[in-house]
């Protein structure tokens, strides 16, 4: 046990570095993913056919192929056709596009779930379409998006581990390196799993707090 403890202590600084990177990737990617999700989700409901079709193509392309394949494609192929991006940019962009595609389904579902009568009341009050969207549709749809977006955030934390395969020193990358150099394979991988769990759990708690504040129950002022 003595040696296990010293191993853990010896590994800790590098693992903490890796964990910080993983958290940074997650927090950097999430807003972009949410933005892409919102744009694509709205675009799919557009009256302008080309916009709606473009959104469908984007969503199906990223949902229909594998994240790792997308990552390698962006990493290996884009430079060949003259697009030079840093591994970080490549990684964050691919993750954001991928999760944006999945998230757009959440956005679309939530928008379509707003009761028709709410939209009709807004139209009967002669509100312009943009205002209907901003003032009636989104405020009612956003709270419903929070729980599924929370799940997506956990999926995102897990997915960031793939960035270790395009040379980014995230938690997984550091862990693999440590497993090789120290030979303490079991300890390292268990620690790795535990740290990921810790990150995911913390984010789950944060999302729950957010839901309590802005979730369906609160914003709709359910009586009592």
């Amino acid at each position: 046990m003595e040696t296990l403890l010293t191993t853990v202590i010896a590994l800790a600084p590098r693992l903490v570095d890796g964990a910080m990177t993983t958290v940074a990737i997650t927090l950097l990617t999430a807003p972009f993913a949410a933005l892409f999700a919102l744009i694509a989700g709205l675009a799919r409901l557009s009256h302008v056919r080309t916009i709606a079709v473009a959104a469908v193509v984007y969503v199906e392309l990223f949902r229909g192929t594998s994240l790792l394949v997308q990552l390698f494609f962006m990493f290996y192929v884009l430079p060949l056709i003259g697009i030079e991006l840093s591994p970080w940019t490549t990684g964050v962009a691919t993750l954001a596009l991928n999760f944006g595609a999945y998230g757009s389904e959440i956005v679309r579902g939530a928008l379509l779930a707003v009761p028709r009568g709410q939209i009709e009341a807004a139209l009967a009050l002669h509100m312009p379409p943009n205002r209907v969207l901003r003032r009636v549709l989104l405020p009612q749809a956003l709270p419903a998006m929070l729980p599924p977006f929370g799940n997506q955030l956990i999926e995102l934390v897990k997915a960031t581990s793939l960035l270790s395969l395009i040379t980014i020193s995230d938690l997984t990358f550091v862990g693999n390196a440590l497993a090789q150099t120290t030979g303490r394979v079991t300890t390292v991988y268990i620690l790795l799993l535990a740290v990921y769990f810790g990150i995911a759990y913390t984010l789950t708690l944060a999302m729950r707090a957010l839901e309590r504040r802005y979730g369906v129950a609160r914003t709709m002022a359910a009586a009592r």
Binding site: K158, S161, S164, N176, V185, T186, Y189, L193, Y196, F197
Partner: peptide, 21 residues
């Protein structure tokens, strides 16, 4: 909860590298 909240990639490594030990 644990398996769901941790990356598949690490679980693959775990099974591949740790179990044989």
């Amino acid at each position: 909860e644990f398996v769901r909240s941790t990356p598949l990639l690490i679980q693959i490594f775990f099974i591949y590298y740790v179990l044989p030990l």
